[in-house]
């Protein structure tokens, strides 16, 4: 996170230091890079008493000792312990962390976890434009009539949806379509197709969510 280039990343938590080693690193490469990083940050570590955990590759006890020696010598910190970060600790750490955003108990948005990667579109999707994506699509702008979005995951339109959207195009029936103004020419989720009822109030912004219920597409206000 702190580093632009991919490589070993140092992170702090409330117990000490977490070293994240990329999976494709071998021991000698990891050791050399840790040495370099610690040396650069020696002033920061000096005199501190830290517990160190690492993630990514698994090291033998001998290799752990070597890394520990490197840290001891180069950082000037007192290394209380060095161990591989195990899942339970990580989870405990996550659990302890204060929640930044209260997650809505409304389960709607999180019902399909396997929506894949996400593409952001930061412009109006105009007539004649077709956006196809293996994953979810978020449009910051409108989708105009004649514009098409086809996504294997969910589709979220932060604007008016007036065009055609197909969510769950690979057959994922848990996919949903959400728009601040849902006035599409047609929406499709998996193999279900729906048109909008005609003649509803045009200019009101009321966020709506479409998803499959009992085999047909249902739209509800959110």
């Amino acid at each position: 996170m702190e580093n632009e280039k991919k490589g070993i990343v140092f992170k702090g938590n409330n117990e000490g230091l977490v070293i994240v080693i990329p999976d494709d690193y071998d021991f000698s490469k990891a050791k050399a890079e840790i040495e370099e990083k610690v040396q650069n940050a020696a002033r920061f570590f000096r005199g501190a008493k830290i517990k160190v955990v690492y993630r990514g590759i698994t090291l033998t006890p001998e290799e752990e000792d070597e890394i520990r020696n490197v840290l001891d010598e180069k950082s000037g910190a007192i290394i209380e312990s060095l161990s591989k970060d195990d899942e339970s600790k990580l989870n405990a750490f996550i659990a302890k962390r204060p929640k930044k955003v209260p997650v809505s108990s409304h389960k709607l948005f999180f019902s399909s976890d396997d929506a894949g990667p996400c593409k952001f579109v930061r412009s109006t999707v105009r007539s004649g434009t077709r956006i196809e994506f293996d994953g979810s699509v978020v449009v910051i702008g409108d989708v105009n009539p004649g514009g098409e979005i086809v996504a294997s995951g969910n589709v979220i339109v932060l604007g008016a949806l007036r065009g055609m959207v197909h969510a769950g195009s690979e057959g994922n029936r848990d996919s949903f379509i959400y728009a601040l103004k849902l006035k599409p020419t047609q929406i499709r989720i998996a193999e279900a197709i729906a048109r909008m009822p005609e003649g509803s109030d045009e200019n009101k912004i009321c966020p709506e969510l479409a998803r499959i219920k009992d085999g047909i597409i249902e739209v509800e206000q959110v």
Binding site: S123, R126, S127, G128, T129, N144, P145, G146
Partner: peptide, 11 residues
Amino acid sequence: RDADRIIGLLE
């Protein structure tokens, strides 16, 4: 509708 398409092409 056509104007919308044209605007997209101009952009």
